[in-house]
Computed example of a mutant assay.
Amino acid sequence: MEQSVVHSPGRAADPSPQPRDPAVAGDLRAYLLGGSADGPPEGGRRLARRLRGLLGPGTRHGLKMLGTRLAAPGSARRLRQLHDSGAPLLLNLGSGTYNVPGWVNIDLWGWHAAWGVHPDVVWDLRRPLPLPDGAVDAVFMEHVLEHLPAREGLGALEQCHRLLRPGGVLRLSVPDFGRYARSYVAAATGTGEDVAFLTQERPGRPTPLMAVSEVVYHHGHVSVWDAETLAALMRCAGFEHVTRRAYRDTDLSPVPDSPERLGESLYMEGIRAGSPDASS
């Protein structure tokens, strides 16, 4: 039976927010159906898109892990050679498409070749690196932790703590979600500071929320970090003298920071306790 809808006289209508611009709906449709411009150079991008079209995400992941497992014996030998050389060991873990000169760049086997980049060592960082405790002078992880659930992120930092010699430095870089959140509030309410940050770092998004959601959900991200939370995680993993740093503000040499990550990044450093000359 059809029922009539009764409106209470004293009740205000639902104040549903309206787009600030009628074009927003069209922009949103194009944004949701379009592809990301981020990717390898054009030739590599065409190849990567073709492969992605032929292979589903499960198949791609399986191939990546298979390639990594097949490379593991040679990678273990390479790490032993680097350790036995007696030279300082600086590890760039989860190097992706940015190999830092002077550092040992470590990542999964994958499609890095589409960007013209190959890691020095292929390894699944969910497995402990085959190096003795205290064998490493510094560890750098740039935009890696957001690809791990927080619990796995703690395990990764505990492995870094094991690898570092006393006095060794862990330098971390992640998207600064705290700043993204503040900028979103400023854009949505017209109050607060740093309102331009969203549009500077993620221009052309149809709404501020879509820009923020990319930090949470896109690019394989599964966790978000601000300065307070990241510092707490580092201390939980055993690091001391945890400090927030700026881009290229570090005593590490060569400086590992990628200039492409400067705008949105939060940088933190921590030290494994003990004298540099102490045994592990």
Rank of each mutant, 00 (worst) to 15 (best):
D27I: 03
A76N: 08
G10K: 15
R69H: 14
W111S: 05
R20W: 05
D14H: 07
R80P: 00
V24M: 04
D107A: 11
L93D: 08
R50Y: 02
W109M: 14
A87Q: 15
N92C: 04
W115Y: 15
P19H: 02
P15K: 08
H7S: 11
S95F: 03
P22V: 04
G74M: 14
L55F: 08
L32P: 04
R60T: 00
G56S: 09
G110E: 03
P15Q: 10
D38K: 15
G43R: 15
S8T: 03
G26F: 09
H118T: 06
M65D: 05
G26M: 11
R80M: 08
A37P: 13
W109G: 13
D120T: 00
W109V: 11
G110T: 03
G10F: 14
D27H: 13
A113G: 02
P57W: 06
A12T: 02
P9W: 15
Q18N: 10
G34Q: 02
I106V: 10
A30G: 06
G86W: 10
H83F: 12
Y98W: 09
G67P: 04
L89T: 02
A13R: 15
W103I: 02
V100I: 01
N105F: 01
D27S: 13
P41A: 12
R80A: 14
L91K: 06
W103L: 10
Q81G: 07
G96P: 05
G43F: 09
T97V: 10
H112P: 01
H7R: 15
K64F: 08
V117Q: 11
G86E: 05
A114N: 07
L82T: 00
V100P: 04
L91H: 03
R45S: 15
G116C: 09
A37S: 15
L108T: 01
V24Y: 01
D21I: 02
A23D: 12
A71P: 02
Y31T: 05
G110P: 03
A72Q: 12
G53A: 00
D120I: 00
D107W: 12
R77L: 12
V104Q: 08
G53N: 01
R80D: 06
T59G: 00
G26N: 11
S36A: 15
W115G: 01
W109K: 13
G94K: 13
H61I: 02
L108F: 12
A30V: 03
P40G: 12
S85W: 09
S16N: 09
D21W: 06
P88H: 07
L47R: 10
V100S: 05
W111L: 07
N105K: 08
P22K: 11
L54H: 05
G39V: 07
R78A: 06
P40R: 09
A23Q: 14
S36D: 14
G62E: 11
T59N: 01
